[in-house]
Design a protein around this nucleic acid. Structure first.
Lengths: 347, 347
DNA sequence: CATACGACCGTAATCGTTTTCGGAAGCAGT
DNA sequence: ACTGCTTCCGAAAACGATTACGGTCGTATG
């Protein structure tokens, strides 16, 4: 009762029940909108809860229910790890959340530090019962995390395909379509020797992209030379470094296509410093990013609505969460997300 | 027992205890490193837990203990919200985590969507008992979140000062020092009419920075003209837009100082498009960001180690968490984080 | 031999919810 | 008056962990 006097938030359903002089069962039912509770009683409970600032304890609730009401978005921290910048994820998060909040779900980012194994991290968090569902990013060529979540029967969706397939939904950007459009455009412009920048590590998108590039080039009787496949760290500095490699290769490719959005800034500068003018002596086609539009010459790039991507991720995730699949129980959704070309002066 | 046969992770302490044929109490004590358990027994428990992949359920544990073992980093999502560049948060997170993981604490990002009130969001998450401690960012001039957390007696630290003071620790970048060094440098170079770009919204750092600029200018017999204080949205596009305002003002300031790191890209481009060459017809001093180093002329800017900042945040946070203040119980830490000048060609 | 003590472990209470089950009361129909 | 049905609510059993408490050994001490 002391809390009540101090105007403090009430700390348990017990206190609230005592205050109203009814049982905790009824209070719980009233709060959760169950059927068999008198309208007047419900009103009193709701009113008192509001007045006293009562909020159910999440631990107790999720212990009993076996679900937590939170969705985790797993990502790796560290400057050199993530292939995307803050802005990328912030926008996607925002989309995810607008959907989740309609279902009273909360989104948290599960931050796996750069010196911890992602698989072990994920194992720990799912075993702890932290989240009801998970969104994966930075999908690897073969991604053991898929199997882990599948074994634990945790609903999840991944941003990105993998060779590992456990029947889960995924959404992936259309890197193959991008490869096709980009290569055809460059070939049409007369380029015969096109290089690509391979994204770092073992991300699956690298393979998808490179393979499709090869195919399209082959359709035009061209090949992707092995030494015109460049590796770069996913950072501005990585772009700068790889620029010098590109510039010094002989023969030098006349055009470069890349899927990473943040290293293009460094790439431009590096090429300029090496005396190879982007857009004039070497064509560049890349991905849109907020700063890409301020490069000169303007970057020819592929763009998409990140917020819409987030919305779609959340909706498809909900469709595989048993407790939430209200609308949609069709095929496991696998979406290849289209990107649109912004024609710039760079290629 | 069925789970055991399938090689599945064990799902409760009960199963583990049955498997070992000892009581759950002993298992718990063994796992938590309590004193009165036989060394051999402890070894068996640890081994079995490892083998069977047992991890304590977080809900049960935190219900009993009253703490969750997670630290929340609150941030707002949405493309236009975050005023930081690229991998700002990723780097800070990484630093925070290296410290927290040593104490078996996990970091999660609490993502407040752009269409939810931050105060309400925070209220909800603390009431749910989600995190043991909180790190706040995007500190406002007057920040009610401080009072909220203080009322609920939740340990927290903020990245950024506020006029609201409830005795909590904070760490803030040395915007005043930056103002001082930047202004003095520009004055020394002959500038007499210096303008600034005000960061968006009601962030406290805007006031701190502007006030100190005024003071330092006054020391040199100069003033900060009202119409040379420019407002811009914290984005590349915002920088582009404000560039035209700056270019068309008459008289036009001969130098600009700004604290936001991401709008400088747009600013450069905007000024160029308006025919005012950065570094030649107008000096610019700003903040370092990964892409700033690739501007030309190179940006004169202030930099810091984001990872170290994260480490410091975590350490100071621990020092106000009763269960963790092993080392440090001195004064409430308030740190003004120094930044170092990188001399560029822009000003 | 009796006692005390330390080492180890099992029992059971506890944390705050949700939910099942059954009971009480009221009402209608026979 | 008896039965059956609704409507509402209370009692109590979970959920999975931690921990206070007490009990059972063996061993040392007098």
């Amino acid at each position: 009762m002391s809390n009540l006097l101090k105007g403090f938030p009430v700390t348990g359903i017990r206190q609230l029940a005592d205050y109203l002089d009814i049982s905790i069962g009824t209070v719980s039912r009233a709060l959760n909108g169950k059927a068999d509770v008198n309208a007047e009683t419900r009103r009193r409970v709701l009113e008192a809860a509001e007045k006293l600032g009562y909020v159910p304890n999440q631990s107790g609730r999720s212990l009993r229910k076996g679900s937590t009401g939170v969705v985790g978005f797993m990502m790796q921290t560290g400057p050199e790890i993530t292939s995307q910048g803050d802005a990328f994820f912030m926008s996607v998060f925002d989309g995810v959340q607008t959907v989740l909040s309609r279902h009273k779900l909360d989104l948290v980012a599960l931050l796996c530090s750069s010196n911890e194994d992602p698989y072990a991290y994920l194992q720990r968090t799912v075993a702890r019962g932290f989240a009801d569902a998970i969104i994966l990013s930075a999908t690897r060529r073969n991604d053991a995390r898929f199997e882990l979540l599948h074994r634990h029967d945790i609903p999840f969706i991944s941003l990105g395909r993998s060779l590992t397939d456990v029947g889960q939904p995924w959404i992936d950007l259309d890197f193959e379509g991008m490869a096709e459009v980009a290569i055809k455009r460059l070939v049409k412009a007369g380029h015969r020797d096109i290089g690509i920048i391979w994204p770092h590590g073992d991300l699956n998108l690298g393979y998808l992209f490179a393979d499709r590039c090869r195919e399209v080039l082959a359709e035009h009787g061209l090949t992707l030379k092995e030494d015109h496949i460049f590796r770069a760290k996913p950072s501005e500095a990585g772009g700068y470094a790889v620029a010098h490699e590109i510039a010094s290769r002989s023969p030098r490719p006349s055009a470069i296509v890349l899927v990473n959005e943040i290293l293009v800034t460094g790439l431009y500068k590096g090429l300029e410093d090496a005396g190879v003018k982007p857009g004039k002596e070497i064509a560049i086609v890349g991905r849109y990013s907020p700063q890409a539009q301020f490069l000169s010459p303007t970057l020819t790039c592929f763009t998409l609505s990140l917020r819409d991507l987030g919305i779609s991720l959340a909706e498809h995730l909900l469709s595989v969460m048993p407790a939430y699949q209200s609308h949609y129980v069709g095929q496991t959704p696998r979406v290849i997300w289209p990107m649109t070309l912004i024609e710039g002066a760079s290629g």
